[in-house]
Nucleic acid binder design. Structure first.
Lengths: 194, 194
DNA sequence: CAAGGGCTATCTATCAATAGATAGGCTTCG
DNA sequence: CGAAGCCTATCTATTGATAGATAGCCCTTG
């Protein structure tokens, strides 16, 4: 049976992630997580002394897992298009299969009410995502200027976060697919002139 | 001196809105709001019996104010471009001047952890925004199909929410302007094929 | 007009429940 | 042994919410 069993720490982080993605950082307690795992809240404190420490651990675990799933943006065996499709697929899965928000999207929303360490851990998710996306987009548009690549990467992650947020607000997961398909009439082009 | 003075109810709603937009619905207490207003928490309960009731009132107030500021999407004295610019300007102001998230963006993020009434009040913001945007986009693209207009409206609001969320995550308000300017390389076009 | 009734808004005081956090003990296993 | 992991038990602070008192205001009514 190898290493199929999860450690308590892993189960705590998993439960906390689920709770945060459902109700936000202030929307769960140590007792909630302990109950999910099947231990007492004091035992959660044994592994994570403070709620902030737990929050940081959850954000790091989420970010690491996310980027591990993405793989190398320079992977020659996969074209930029396939990589972007996989990227959108991760957010789609978060919404449709897990039925939850992006963890760091939630943390970003309540960012101003979080301690600095948790805030920074959430920011790190965005920064590492942007770095990955820039790698992909620069393969996609070899001659493009650095600024344009940067803007495109921002656009891609903002679209994902906006799509998952809007889909949840409207309680209609289909909205995500509408938003991640190309079909824009270009209605916002005008904003350029403002 | 006319009607410059605000009622207590108005000041409570104002303080609660600010708190929610900063730390989320679970990130503030009756005592916090009472302190902001300069009264006791029992007095807040006098006006809003439960936290949910306060949350609903805040969401409605926010949504009404937002749509009042937008005006009539069919207003002939303003072109669709100007209306969209004004639309983006409201979100931009929320981020840059008020230094906060969109209220209903925050509520949407923690939506699954909110009571049904608050959830619905937040959803109403999105639905009324979409209705307004469809009015503008259908003027902008007179011949377009209903589906395309609907998708374009979704795209516009998702972009705003995604932009404000991403800007806050990165703690860089300039990100909002990058995201609301037309300059896409079309990198996500590929998702259509998936 | 004056007296009274009732309404509104606020207060003090308090409640039970829950929050995050801590101290110290028991057990298991290398 | 001794470290690790989980426990019981408890602490203090805070939470949303309630009860009851007080003061001021408006409207009636004699």
């Amino acid at each position: 049976m190898a290493k199929t069993e999860k450690t308590t720490v892993e189960r705590i982080v998993e439960a906390a992630e689920s709770r945060i993605r459902t109700a936000g950082f202030h929307g769960f307690s140590f007792r909630d997580v302990a109950g999910d795992v099947g231990i007492k809240s004091a035992s959660v404190h044994h592994h994570f002394p403070t709620k902030d420490a737990l929050g940081v651990a959850v954000a790091r675990s989420y970010t690491d897992r996310f980027l591990r799933a993405l793989g190398d943006p320079g992977d020659e065996s996969r074209g930029p298009e396939a990589l972007l499709a996989a990227y959108a697929g991760l957010f789609r899965r978060a919404l449709m299969v897990e039925g939850k928000m992006c963890l760091c999207g939630v943390l970003a929303a309540e960012s101003a009410g979080l301690s600095a360490p948790v805030q920074l851990a959430a920011r790190d998710f965005f920064q590492r995502n942007l770095a990955w996306l820039k790698g992909v987009h620069s393969r996609q548009f070899p001659g493009a200027a650095e600024d344009a690549i940067e803007a495109e990467a921002l656009r891609t992650i903002a679209l994902m976060e906006g799509a998952i947020l809007t889909a949840r607000a409207l309680d209609d997961v289909g909205v995500f697919d509408v938003l991640t398909q190309k079909g824009s009439l270009g209605g916002l082009a005008v904003l350029q002139k403002v």
